[in-house]
């Protein structure tokens, strides 16, 4: 270890880091190529030819559109629920110390920390016991539960950085609690909520394990893809859908990054 701080990284480390990043990205890039292949019966590499026709074919597929629509609806409503619950929870945990505070943060993290199959099967058996038929709302119920944690994490981080004296100042100047929330708290946490909301949306939009247990006959986009993965029937359409999913999820992630980057997320220094 050289003591000169300005000296560059050892070559071995550079290569290993670059190889690691390549390992994480090349498989995704591969899908982008496959979306254009002319081959429709196998996963042949290199592609025998390139074509754009599968985009048109996919565009005219009602089942893909229905799955997409369901996914967007589920993700929007789950995100809305998660935003409310996550913010409330974060506000309570940050501002005060109370008995069971640790337990609350544990419960919030639990749906993500425990394997998804446990959340899925317990919800399924609970729905069975309570005689609740599987529907759009059972999917939302499951999704909202594990989306709370991302909103909560973002909100907690932002609350911690927001000075409490702002709220006191607002109250001293005569604003009531709701005005303070509307004009002081909300503008301060808005970008964190937006970022958390987008991540929650991405999480829900992509979820498959819990959904297989809580969905009845409906197919969200991930469920549609899962069926294709297990029994490939329309490889070219799947390729195109996979590519679109990649591009669509990249945007909220990039946006969430830019919304939170001036804060704690980019760790340029130790905490």
């Amino acid at each position: 270890m050289r003591s000169d701080k300005r000296s560059g990284a050892p070559t071995g480390l550079k290569i290993a880091a670059a190889a690691g990043l390549a390992f994480m990205h090349l498989p995704i890039l591969l899908i982008l190529v496959y979306a254009f292949t002319t081959e429709d019966k196998t996963y042949q590499w290199p592609p025998p030819g390139l074509t754009l026709k599968w985009f048109a074919v996919t565009w005219n597929r009602p089942d893909v559109w229905e799955a997409l629509q369901l996914s967007v609806r589920v993700a929007s409503i789950s995100t809305a629920i998660a935003l409310v619950l996550g913010t409330l929870c974060a506000a309570a945990v940050v501002r005060t110390k109370f008995f069971g505070r640790e337990a609350i943060s544990l419960i919030v993290i639990l749906p993500i920390a425990l394997p998804g199959i446990i959340t899925g099967i317990s919800l399924r058996s609970a729905f069975n016991i309570a005689d609740i038929p599987f529907s759009f709302w059972t999917i939302v119920l499951g999704h909202a539960t594990f989306c709370v944690v991302v909103v909560y994490n973002n909100a907690v981080a932002r609350f911690r950085r927001t000075s409490g004296s702002l709220i006191e100042a607002s109250m001293d100047l005569g604003a009531n609690g709701f005005q303070t929330f509307r004009y002081v708290v909300l503008p301060n946490i808005a970008t964190a909520l937006l970022a958390g909301g987008m991540l929650a949306f991405a999480l829900s939009f992509d979820e498959v394990i819990v959904t297989t247990f809580t969905a009845g006959q409906q197919a969200t986009l991930p469920i549609w893809m899962l069926e294709e993965l297990v029994r490939p029937r329309q490889r070219p359409v799947t390729n195109v859908v996979a590519m679109v999913v990649i591009l669509v999820t990249f945007l909220p992630i990039l946006a969430a990054y830019y919304l939170t980057r001036d804060g704690d997320q980019v760790a340029g220094h130790g905490r």
């Binding site: 990043l21 994480m24 990205h25 498989p27 995704i28 591969l30 899908i31 496959y34 996963y43 590499w45 991540l199 991405a202 999480l203 992509d206 498959v208 991930p222 893809m225 899962l226 993965l229 799947t238 996979a242 999913v245 990649i246 999820t249 990249f250 992630i253 990039l254 990054y257 997320q265 980019v266």
Partner: peptide
């Protein structure tokens, strides 16, 4: 950071699908 975040958040099934390919 983005190089880690993008694969982290991109679709699980798409990632599995990529390996099937």
């Amino acid at each position: 950071y983005l190089g880690v975040m993008l694969p982290l958040w991109s679709s699980y099934l798409v990632k599995v699908y990529a390996w099937k390919l």
